[in-house]
Amino acid sequence: MLRERLTAEMKAAMKAGEKQKLSTVRMIQAALKDKDIEARVSGNGTGQIDEAEILSLLQKMIKQRTEAASVYEQGGRPELAEGERAEVAIIATFLPQQMDEAETRAAIAAAVAETAAAGPKDMGKVIAVLKGKYAGQMDFSKASGLVKEALAGK
């Protein structure tokens, strides 16, 4: 479904003459093709990555561009930082609504109960469950701290 949406957005950007959006969507599709090729080489049956992996890829792209924007800002190149932020905004439109902190804490509590996590050593199990259920909806860099906090009391 996300693949079709990317193609439709690319066509719409072409027709509207939105160069920034067009180049960003093409960049996403190129990264997606790279991941599909990796999946084929590694022996994935379909030769394509699934929706959760696509969402993970988009989050990774956002993180890369956010970091690049801060580096450009520190280097005195605000025009390049602005370009990176524009790409972040476009990529973010393809992600589902992000969970707020209360929803994240509730999901973590449910995952801890589901995995019967007994302490910090079970953090990997909890994160794996969260990634399976909430890919693209949860910021896992923040969630890992909350999981650690939730498991510290056990």
Rank of each mutant, 00 (worst) to 15 (best):
L2Q: 10
E4C: 00
R5P: 01
R5G: 06
T7Q: 04
A13N: 09
A13Q: 06
M14H: 03
M14D: 10
K15S: 11
G17N: 08
K19R: 00
K19P: 05
K21S: 10
K21I: 11
K21L: 08
K21C: 05
S23N: 13
R26G: 11
R26D: 05
L32H: 01
D34T: 15
K35M: 03
S42Q: 14
G47H: 01
Q48W: 01
I49C: 05
E53S: 15
S56K: 15
L57Y: 04
L57G: 04
Q59A: 04
I62D: 10
R77Q: 15
P78Q: 11
P78F: 00
L80K: 15
A81Q: 13
E82V: 13
E87Q: 14
A92R: 15
F94D: 06
L95F: 02
L95Q: 04
P96R: 09
P96Q: 07
M99D: 05
T104V: 10
R105E: 00
I108E: 03
I108D: 07
A110C: 01
A111I: 07
V112N: 12
A113L: 05
T115A: 13
A117E: 11
A117C: 14
A118E: 09
K125P: 09
V126N: 09
K131N: 13
G132F: 01
G132P: 06
K133G: 09
Y134V: 04
Y134L: 09
A135M: 03
G136W: 01
G136E: 03
S141E: 15
K142E: 11
K142A: 11
A143R: 11
A143N: 10
S144E: 11
G145H: 13
L146M: 15
V147C: 09
A152N: 14
K154L: 07
